[in-house]
């Protein structure tokens, strides 16, 4: 899905998900590793504040990913 959106629209698509190998396999170009399968962009176990903080951090990383020139599939770890 991620690959086809990027191909069709010609715009950067950042995928946030937990299982990085699957994203690499299906052809996502800009990859941000998520927290866990049931909550990829949050950390509910650390309470409401920790959860929101984690979400903000991951989104900031996504913004960085979409603003970065890349030549190949890239994992944005920080």
């Amino acid at each position: 899905m991620v690959r086809e959106i990027e191909k069709e629209a010609g715009i950067p698509v950042v995928q946030i998900a937990t299982i990085v190998p699957i994203m690499l396999t299906v052809g996502a170009n800009r990859i941000v590793p998520g927290v866990a399968i049931p909550h990829p962009v949050g950390d509910p176990e650390s309470g409401p504040e920790g959860d929101r903080k984690k979400r903000r951090e991951l989104l900031q990383r996504a913004f960085k990913a979409m603003s970065t020139e890349i030549k190949e599939q890239t994992i944005f770890k920080d």
Partner: peptide
Amino acid sequence: GKELKEAGVDAVILTST
């Protein structure tokens, strides 16, 4: 992708579980 392009969207964040 087609709809987003027509709507003038510049970038996408896609989350997966």
